[in-house]
Design a protein around this nucleic acid. Structure first.
Lengths: 244, 244
DNA sequence: GTAATAGTGTCTTTAAGACACTATGTA
DNA sequence: TACATAGTGTCTTAAAGACACTATTAC
């Protein structure tokens, strides 16, 4: 029997099917670090460990729609979700990754301004923003609480977080991902801070400014930030799709 | 009921589950083009159209193992499969992508030397190697037969092929993917031909040679190719994991 | 020698890094 | 005025593109 014949004769009810879920890395940048939203598990398995928000995929629901649904629920966004970066990351399907039953998880990552995620966790005991730490060469990332302590992570979510950070780093230079992490108006210094937090290294200021301006992704507004005790910086905006 | 509680109370048999399959893009480079192995469908739906080889994922089988199994079956490789590049690409899960039932397809791509795929299709009426063509900005790639005619593609496999080509292009410069498409010993001209076929554009010869040699991925053997009517080129080998 | 391709030397161009400098707001 | 940060001019460095040149093999 060939693959082809097998496929034709295949009866969906005849073999057990895996469950399919989406797991979301809701990320932002704050305090010089990439931060992710985690939810504390109240029950076994991995009781009291921290997990990515997720949901099973409805039988008539697309993967993207399931991810957008979880995003809306967890981040408290309406259907609009304009300016939010949402992208499929990788699919994790090791048989033992969930001890209860076979669950194949399609991981997504979403990028949001820090203010949005702060609002989402405010007053919620079971939700937290954790700082990401990925030692070079490590397969899994660590999630750090405010005191720098590593939080226990459920399932294979440390690996999902590692993949998300690596993807984010890889896209930073050729996709306009950083702007989803900033308010609508931002200074070049804030933009550079975001890049440095994601890459985990300092960048050269004149070169960064040249690159950003030549790229065509941003546009000066002529407005200035609210000044402190020094010269206020110009505010820029992201030019939606006009550059590159 | 929160997501969390839902997950805990979830009874795998209570809701219908999607089927999960892997689909493979088996790719090589020949005649200056990226070529992929396609299989002609004998039955509805998409009867007589061409499809990527694939298989359902066993309930206790990892995604990678399912992909490796299809690779072994279709490309006629033993379990070894040394030097073959196999990588998960993207997961396609639109509800209507298979008209029979909900099938979520985890797409993989594999890179093999042209000789291996030639052997796989030899004497098989239902298998063919088709040239990939991706017009700029198009969402789906076309598959061309030997005469340059576009073959009808089944399901959303044109989009899978487009994603595979884009991923391949993106990785070419920072991952040693090209070597999986060449025999163990190759000339710099052959390596450049592979790069040019994947990128779809000509490259500068001295710059290409400098880059390849500085990169540390290749090593001269001192041997020469069998000469034609001209100076024979030096043969190089891929230094497994030593460079970079 | 010729033909044909392998392989290189070197100039130009482009972009990034380094670093010091000037500019401009508040107090 | 001092202070602190914004923003720039310019030199150096690294790498890619252009292009012509030399090298080596079969015949």
């Amino acid at each position: 029997m060939t693959e082809e014949e097998f496929l034709e004769a295949y009866d969906p009810a005849r073999f057990p099917h895996p469950s399919v879920a989406v797991d979301l890395v809701l990320a932002t940048v704050a305090a010089g670090r990439v931060m992710v939203l985690l939810q504390r598990r109240s029950a076994h398995p991995f009781q009291h460990a921290w997990a990515l928000p997720g949901s099973f995929v409805g039988i008539e629901e697309s993967l993207d729609a399931a991810a957008a649904r979880v995003l809306a629920e967890k981040a408290g966004l309406g259907a609009g979700a304009e300016g939010v970066w949402l992208e499929q990351l990788y699919t994790f399907g090791a048989p033992g990754r969930d001890p209860r039953t076979r669950v194949i998880a399609v991981a997504y990552f979403a990028l949001l301004p820090a203010a949005v995620l702060d609002r989402a966790v405010a007053g919620r005991d079971d939700l937290a923003l954790a700082g990401l730490d990925l030692p070079v060469g490590a397969a899994a990332a660590r999630a750090l609480d405010g005191a720098g302590q590593a939080l226990p992570l459920a399932f294979d979510h440390g690996e999902i977080l590692a993949q998300a950070l690596l993807r984010l780093r890889g896209k930073l230079d050729y996709a306009p991902v950083a702007f989803s992490l900033l308010p609508a108006r931002f200074t070049l210094r804030e933009l550079q801070d975001v890049h440095e937090a994601i890459l985990g290294q300092a960048l050269n200021k004149p070169a960064f400014r040249r690159r950003m301006i030549d790229q065509g992704w941003i546009e000066g507004t002529g407005l200035r930030e609210a000044a402190g005790a020094f010269r206020p910086a110009e505010l820029y905006t992201f030019r939606m799709g006009k550059g590159e």
